[in-house]
């Protein structure tokens, strides 16, 4: 244990994902020795992401404008919507280069332990999207790509129930083969690409 603010900094850093106690300590002492200007710049960037980042009105992905780059891109198939939990999952699916449709970011998964129910997720927005017209097309297929873990599976089951009654809508789920208990973002491109192309109707 160090005294005062140094320990506070180590504790805060240690709370970040992927950073263990040793790394937290190393980063803290690095910052302690860094030029004041460098630290100020980091501080400003942190401030800006929290204040300045907006989310796409349509899909909920992070975006600098009211609608994101993918939703504005006319070459992407608007009839196809891939539902993911987080913006980082959009990146994971994009990395496969297999997918030419649009996205819908839920903002998490059903997680009663953390007080997350359907109303805390962008499910109503998803249902609204399916009825309406975006980019001149109607949604004909929803691919559910929530994480292959307890909460992601429960969310998928719930979505399947909600989407079941839309006439003419195909609902598919990523093919199995993704490491169970995992996170979509940790699946390698090849596995995720295969899961995407082998998706099955549910």
């Amino acid at each position: 244990m160090y005294e005062g603010p140094v320990q506070d900094l180590i504790d805060e850093l240690g709370r970040l994902p992927g950073i263990g106690p040793k790394s937290a300590q190393r980063i803290a002492f690095h910052l302690l020795g860094a030029e004041p200007a460098d630290v100020t710049r980091l501080q400003e960037v942190l401030q800006r992401v929290k204040e300045g980042v907006t989310f796409c009105d349509i899909c909920g992905n992070v975006s600098e404008q009211a609608t994101c780059r993918i939703c504005r891109d006319a070459r992407r198939d608007a009839a196809l919507v891939c539902v993911v939990e987080e913006p980082k999952d959009v990146l994971a699916v994009e990395r496969t280069r297999e997918y030419r449709g649009r996205y819908h970011v839920l903002g998490g998964a059903l997680d009663p332990l953390s007080g997350v129910g359907p109303d805390q997720l962008r499910i109503r927005e998803l249902l609204g999207r399916i009825g309406g017209q975006y980019g001149g097309a109607e949604v004909t297929e929803v691919i559910i790509a929530t994480d292959p873990n307890t909460e992601g599976e429960a969310t998928a089951t719930y979505l399947v129930r909600m989407l079941r009654d839309f006439p003419g809508l195909t609902v598919t789920r990523l093919a199995s083969g993704l490491p169970m208990g995992g996170d979509l973002e940790f699946a390698d491109e090849l596995t995720l690409g295969r899961a995407l192309s082998g998706r099955r109707s549910v």
């Binding site: 307890t150 089951t157 719930y158």
Partner: peptide
Amino acid sequence: GRSDDAALGTLEVWDNH
């Protein structure tokens, strides 16, 4: 309220799992 209906709606999902 509406919110509890939604919560109860997910109970069935958890029942199944």
